[in-house]
């Protein structure tokens, strides 16, 4: 998929700061972080534990609002400091996809239902949602496990289903927090390549928090955080 040159950035984070607690217990988890992700771009976010990567990811994922700064998505301002400018839940539903270290599949839904539920939540008709979920599972190479419950899937297969779920509503931004940490290096690389494929073929921006240095060649660029500050980006 070709992204028009003049299309607005998938996400613009401007001067994001997150402070937990106050007074003596105040902790600055993230300080004045600004990043822009273009559509179709796949970006790695690196840094040691406690650097503020997850705080940044959850801030632009509209889960954990920043204390200060602005977030603009697709040209539309969505957060101004801790103040939401849009209905965050509806915005996540329509524009964001998430993948985590654990697949977090719903245990009582099989693979295809885990993907379809994300679309049904977004008001897609059940039959259409199931059809598209099967397509996505095929795209990610797990169509043959469509009717298996998560318990019956390997870690890699579960993560692919989680990626399919993140893609279900054709989000403009996919956020992945150490998605390969529980996988062996081979399967980890496969998942990273999958993100690249998704970003380049479907035009979603993808930001992946990772410690895995061996797969960095997969990304268009890398950002690095340390002590709540963006060192390189």
């Amino acid at each position: 998929m070709t992204v028009p040159a003049n299309s607005p950035a998938a996400v613009e984070a401007i001067g994001l700061t997150k402070i937990y607690g106050s007074g003596n217990t105040e902790v600055v988890a993230m300080k004045d972080v600004s990043v822009t992700l273009a559509r179709g771009e796949v970006v790695a976010l690196l840094g040691p534990s406690g650097a503020g990567k997850s705080t940044f990811l959850t801030a632009i994922g509209l889960i954990n609002p920043p204390t200060a700064g602005r977030i603009v998505m697709g040209g539309e301002p969505v957060m101004d400091g801790a103040r939401a400018l849009v209905d965050l839940r509806a915005y996540r539903r329509k524009h964001l996809g998430f993948v985590f270290q654990k697949a977090n599949l719903i245990p009582f839904l099989n693979a295809v239902e885990n993907v379809a539920v994300a679309m049904e939540i977004n008001d897609v008709a059940p039959r259409a949602a199931r059809k598209r979920a099967l397509e996505l599972l095929g795209y990610l190479g797990v169509a043959d496990r469509a009717t298996n419950l998560p318990d019956a899937l390997s870690g890699g297969q579960q993560q692919r289903v989680a990626v399919a779920r993140a893609l279900a509503n054709q989000p403009s931004l996919i956020l992945a927090d150490e998605p390969t940490a529980a996988l062996d290096s081979h399967r980890g690389r496969q998942v990273m390549e999958l993100f690249r494929k998704v970003a380049h073929e479907r035009g979603s921006a993808v930001m992946v928090v990772t410690h895995d240095q061996r797969s960095l060649d997969v990304f268009d660029r890398t950002c690095e955080m340390e002590d709540g500050l963006l060192r390189k980006g």
Binding site: F98, N104, I106
Partner: peptide
């Protein structure tokens, strides 16, 4: 945990 996931996905 599943309810949190549903909320994350934007479930009403």
């Amino acid at each position: 945990h599943d309810i949190a996931m549903l909320k994350l996905m934007g479930a009403r």
